[in-house]
Write a protein that binds this DNA or RNA. Structure first.
Lengths: 368, 368
DNA sequence: CAGATCGGTGAATCTAGGG
DNA sequence: ACCCTAGATTCACCGATCT
């Protein structure tokens, strides 16, 4: 618990410090904060401009604070802030760091090198990531968070039951699904543009703080930005200490947090969202070996046949395409539900491929 | 393509090499394999197997030093096998490495340090992970795979359209959901126990090989285990080279792969990208009389017009140039795909000039 | 007013090939 | 090495406006 007593040196609770985060952390007493949440620059290495297929331009992260000269310079930066963070962390405290593949491997290795003990890596799956516009790679649809205690064997905080409750009674997994921060939650500047390029969703911090802190704990965020950590900490009855170099962000964060009211104790309810049935791509039946490339499907009416290819498309009678496209072409129809149209043979019987989809859905319904 | 000709040194295709993977890789010619898939040991306490960099003795010491030494040894091990792998990889080849939070950060950092260029990190979400029995942490429900090219700017293989097809028409994301390897797919030893502790599901390799290799490519797996990579590569018409130290695993893998049949060629064909299609100059439509000089084209949105000239350029509204240049100028856009932008009239209907290009391409494909 | 339509946008290492 | 040009390329969601 945080308490400013004569024994415990005074902490600047619920305030936003300015200046360089290393200097600011060095000014705080050692072994004094319960949790550190760090969202450091990712060291994205932009090349030129990127346009969407409709020719509109993508507003990319090109801020000066994300520019580093080399991997070595980034490692040096990481080492410095992490060492300062480690000093002020209580022995039983913990740290979270979020990043993408550009920086997270350097971050994770540095954590281990400094004696932190990794407890989990958590994947934030974005429901609505930005697509890969040029079709050159996979859609970058997740970010990685590392959760680590100060050292091996330390008694970290983990509210197992609370998380289990958040997850409707089954253990919380290491993959968390949330939308990116958009809409009214996204802070705007006076010009109506996004105020900060990388504002994190409050839902992410909500789960993280419920999981690994208790009411009254002190959470330090050395890259405070527009203060999501402070807003959620305040709402959940925790204390925060923010550090942010940019005056504009400090100002916005302070205004934002001033509006937040701490929830009454009994109000921390789970937001359970019922979801539609998950979409199952036909290709998954092939990947999983439920159907084999080269195998033949028959239409339910028995009139048509098509062969499965390795990428989950069908081919036959001069047509290629998805199960829906080929079904529609065969029937001369504008559209066709391939899931009910196509059948396969098992033990002499004709079975709808939809039964295989149902098997996968049954598995998936156990996930988030 | 893999071929053993006098020019290309002989590769031990579709075989399992024995011994230490570094020694085995060092015996292969440089720049010779298309893809490396590596599933290295995760365990950081590998003292017996690892060569200590300084040959110092490991005895009872404090935890921190012990952890540091073991990280150092693991890094050394990683560095060695990765360097050997890098030498035999073709300049336009790529590597995949799979791991968990115990080792993946060290692996990723080493990849970057050695000059590999990360293309994506991919999360394998397990539908049925082992629960965390003690309730002390989150259920560890995923593993991380890193996909990297040999160097920045290298021309890696990525079958974008095939993956999009596998995902039923939308871009494949960086999170892949599959069950862990169980049931009949899981190899058993004579005692009925699981033969290998970390056998990977074939579905994972199926997607990975469809995504980043072509039929005939050579895939090397330095930690072959029970040969999932070899089994799936064989099924998909790719070549493999396995390296495995344990006699028992080699034996099981060989038996397993011997039972696999390569899929027929037509099942292996996957959806291709337009980028791979032969280039057709617009002027050819004019030369062939499909469009006539002097004829007018309209933009798809109906707002603009241009006249065709005999050399296959367009003119109108004070602009001259290629179909792309004039479209871009009209729209005030940085670029424009003239093939989809421009339309002509036939029998009262507006038809995209791209349909004419397709006619020529269809003719050309018959010449092969 | 409900529903349809349209425009905007998000941590991105985002082209290929010929001269 | 650079320069230029052809031409390929997007998903989920939010909010404002229109019907």
């Amino acid at each position: 618990m945080a308490r400013n007593t004569p024994e415990a040196p005074v902490l600047p609770l619920d305030t936003i410090m300015s200046g360089d985060c290393v200097a600011a952390m060095d000014s705080l007493p050692e072994n004094s904060v319960d949790l550190i949440f760090a969202d450091p620059p990712y060291n994205l290495q932009l090349r030129g401009e990127l346009h969407r297929p409709d020719n509109s331009m993508v507003d990319a992260v090109d801020d000066h604070w994300d520019q580093f000269e080399s991997l070595k310079a980034y490692d040096h930066f990481t080492s410095r802030w992490m060492k300062a963070a480690r000093r002020i962390l209580k022995p039983d405290g913990a740290i979270w760091v979020i990043g993408s593949y550009h920086n997270i491997f350097r971050v994770g290795a540095t954590l281990q090198d400094q004696g932190f003990w990794i407890l989990n890596d958590v994947v934030w799956r974005k429901t609505n990531p930005m697509p890969n516009f040029r079709g050159m790679r996979l859609t970058n649809a997740h970010e990685t968070m590392i959760w680590a205690s100060k050292s091996e064997g330390a008694k970290y905080t983990f509210n197992y039951e609370a998380l289990k409750a958040l997850n409707e009674g089954t253990q919380m997994r290491s993959d968390w699904t949330f939308p990116i921060c958009t809409g009214h939650e996204r802070l705007k500047n006076e010009r109506g543009e996004k105020a900060h390029p990388t504002q994190k969703p409050e839902a992410l911090l909500h789960r993280l703080l419920i999981a690994t802190t208790n009411p009254g704990d002190v959470i330090l965020d050395p890259f405070f930005g527009t203060g999501t950590t402070g807003a959620v900490a305040t709402m959940l009855g925790r204390h925060f200490i923010g550090i942010e170099r940019e005056e504009e962000y400090r100002q916005l964060a302070a205004e934002r947090i001033a509006k937040v009211r701490t929830l009454p104790k009994d109000a921390l309810q789970t937001t359970t969202s019922k979801r539609a049935e998950p979409r199952v791509p036909f290709g998954q039946l092939v990947e999983r070996g439920m159907l084999r490339p080269g195998e033949e499907l028959q239409s339910g009416n028995g009139r048509h046949r098509a062969k499965i290819r390795a990428d989950g498309t069908l081919t036959g009678e001069g047509v290629k395409g998805s199960i829906h496209q080929v079904g529609a072409a065969y029937e001369g129809a504008p559209s066709c539900n391939g899931w009910t149209y196509w059948h396969f043979k098992r033990e002499g019987k004709s079975v709808s491929i939809d039964t295989l989809r149902q098997q996968i859905r049954d598995e998936m319904s156990k996930l988030n």
